[in-house]
Design a protein around this nucleic acid. Sequence first.
DNA 1: AGACATTTGTGAAATTCGACACAATCATAT
DNA 2: ATATGATTGTGTCGAATTTCACAAATGTCT
Lengths: 209, 209
Amino acid sequence: MDASVPAIVINRLPLYLRALDLMVENDQRLTSSQELAEWLGISSAQIRKDLSHFGEFGKQGTGYEVPFLRDQLRSILNVDQLWDMAVVGAGALGHALVNYGGFAHRSFRVRAVFDVDPDKIGQSINGMAIESQTVMVERLQTMEIKIALLAVPVRAAQHVADLLVKGGVRAILSYAPITITVPNGIQLAYIDPVVALQSMTYYLTPVVT
Amino acid sequence: MDASVPAIVINRLPLYLRALDLMVENDQRLTSSQELAEWLGISSAQIRKDLSHFGEFGKQGTGYEVPFLRDQLRSILNVDQLWDMAVVGAGALGHALVNYGGFAHRSFRVRAVFDVDPDKIGQSINGMAIESQTVMVERLQTMEIKIALLAVPVRAAQHVADLLVKGGVRAILSYAPITITVPNGIQLAYIDPVVALQSMTYYLTPVVT
DNA sequence: AGACATTTGTGAAATTCGACACAATCATAT
DNA sequence: ATATGATTGTGTCGAATTTCACAAATGTCT
């Protein structure tokens, strides 16, 4: 029950939730910090301590009731509601994001797609019309969209991010491999597969040629 | 010049490299820990300390020569070579990965695509034929592919990962939202947009309905 | 009823990590 | 030459994070 929970703890909660979702799907009733720990490859003490920031969810000798703990985590993470998202950039990545089936059952939904290319505007992806970036700010406000997936080229990323903020977006997940600046209070995260790959190649023996 | 550099340091190096790549593209000759720090939103001392694990790359009063530091980082991360990769799963995500233009200039290249769906096998993406998963292990060995991008459904992820390891793959970047187990020494990283999103919604005020 | 096996939640210890601050060094200008 | 301003690399310290370890609580078995 802290005033402020460390970000590093927050970043682990979705992993716990993901494991619990899977357990619910398998009709598993009970789990323990130890089982979760083995599943996720971390220590059981860490899981207990992380959860203790928010309350007492388990029973000694028994563990945690899976559906209950899942609901608690969903509530903590504010994903006990469905969040509408916009995708900006209707290239190959934008298409994949709009078609991604993994959002629906995990509290997110793509409700709008924007692009600048006149040839793309009006086309539809998965039944959703691609809209012009010129109407984006207004549409975001009207639709009250608070989350955006940024899938535009590097050179456009900062400008589009500015527009998103102007449109009232409060969280941006950027796929552009460049650092973006946003005002205080706006959430920002990056997904860059190359960054992930380069962290791994450090540990690989170079190919001998 | 440590015996073992902390993983958290290794994970930051690709970000430094990304910034330096951009500087090289703009013909910038010199930079400083402070400039990099502002760019990346971290402290300059951290950058200097991170780099000091590997040697002395800067000059007092001047800073760092951009092309030199970039080359050093590429060497450290073993990305001064081109790594061949396999993509497993030729769905929307697999397609996007194969077509992604961001790999080429950052030391990675997709050389093979595998799927189980008989309808997909033989089709080609970006000029590359989709091959059957039944020949995957053998093909991986023949082609000496050491890195794989895993873009298959959750239920297949662990099995495919096992096959990849059997084929000699040493690093797996998984897009499947599930924990995978691999033998010691095999590098494993995850990209799950929902996990990233759920860490951000924690900080967002829930929508009032 | 009592002994036993589990498992939580959490203080305290241990470890890891990041920020600070400054001597040493370099480039430049006068 | 010398002064000046800039910047690195690093020792030190404090903060943040993780692990340890155990009392308290719960369920089970005899």
